[in-house]
Nucleic acid binder design. Structure first.
Lengths: 207, 207
DNA sequence: TAGATTGTTAATCGATTAACAATC
DNA sequence: TAGATTGTTAATCGATTAACAATC
């Protein structure tokens, strides 16, 4: 990770951005306040102001934040001004869902390639992309200088795939496999495991 | 949320549990240490011992933790001794993937019902379940006393579905819709939005 | 102007870590 | 026994919040 802004702050910026985009689409106002944004998100207004203050002064006393302007600034901060190409590994049920998910494109990500190792999968079409042989992964990632990847393979294959991705030059991995991956410093790994989230909630439930 | 154990601690327990289960399946040893577990997960050994100490004393000086015993204890703490039935709302690509995901069952969750509002979807089979009419949701959740739900519908429909779920008695919601949901106190909501995770990583990348 | 809201400071709150006596 | 590792305490570190001068 790079400089001295806490990662937990970085983690909230996409949440702010998402809420601001909805506000903008609602179209009923031009500005918002840390108060309003906070109450939408269940976050204190002080925290929002503090978070933003790490990057500059984006508001005006008395009137708050110009929604479109703040969106633009957040996109700049998060490096979302240009789209990011992404490779997807795994063409099972989940890979299929991800390949068809419409939410990536307009939020800055393009899943341009899908890979699998299963001969039955290789060559078939998914959302107008052809599933490629995993053996072509390294070449492609290098040639296209892809930096981001999504892993949607079984846990048993995930570390192997992660190693291949790192070797090819991938710098950020989002993994759906329910296992902790080893990656060298300088390579980010984030996880999405629904079971982990469900298990975190059952603690608070009466069986 | 219930008592005085920090939620951030609760959030790590499923991670510990998952790693311990893998260790157990590898079958090459009977005990582990906070050190070993920590180095697998990139967490300090002190933190693991501290987290566990909120719930009791599970280890032995000199030898560490008996893997199977600690697994059992964590399952008890997280209320995973009995399986949890879960309703899934949304039979699109993502709902389809979730319905077929094999990772739920052996980790304590059973997706037993799928709902949708699309007449073209209602009645079709998904992994041996019939997609039901969303209008039957309320009755079913009440009758079966289901406490957990997964939302896999578009953002535009998500708040509506969340309201229906809460009204029917659902206490924990895992939402894949890219939007912040309002829910009353006493109802937990957790989110899984891949774009939020990707956007958090692009900050650290050179465009 | 009066009211609203920012950006920032200092105080508070909470989480993580280092260290070690206890003990297996 | 000697070595290893726990559970816990106290210290450190970091994040959140309250408060307010500045100012639109």
């Amino acid at each position: 990770m790079a400089n001295d802004i806490p990662d937990i702050v970085i983690g909230r910026l996409p949440i702010y951005l998402r809420a601001l985009v909805y506000m903008d689409e609602e179209g009923d106002k031009v500005t918002t306040s840390s108060q309003e944004l906070g109450s939408r998100l269940g976050i204190s207004s002080a925290q929002i102001r503090k978070d933003l203050s790490h990057f500059g002064e984006f508001g005006k006393q008395g009137t708050g934040y110009h929604i479109k302007y703040l969106i633009e600034q957040l996109r700049q901060i998060l490096h979302l001004e240009h789209d990011w190409p992404v490779v997807l590994v795994g063409a099972g049920y989940l890979g299929h869902a991800l390949a068809h998910y419409q939410g990536f494109k307009h939020r800055g990500f393009h899943i341009n390639w899908i890979f699998d190792n299963n001969p039955d999968k290789i060559g078939i079409q998914m959302n107008n992309m052809e599933v490629r042989d995993i053996r072509e992964l390294d070449d492609l990632v290098r040639r296209e200088e892809v930096q981001m990847a999504i892993i949607a393979v079984p846990a048993s294959a995930a570390q192997n795939i992660a190693d291949m991705l790192v070797e090819a030059g991938i710098k950020s991995i989002l993994s759906y496999a329910p296992i902790n991956l080893k990656a060298p410093a300088g390579v980010q790994v984030r996880y999405s495991d629904p079971v982990i989230l469900l298990q975190r909630m059952t603690y608070y439930l009466e069986p």
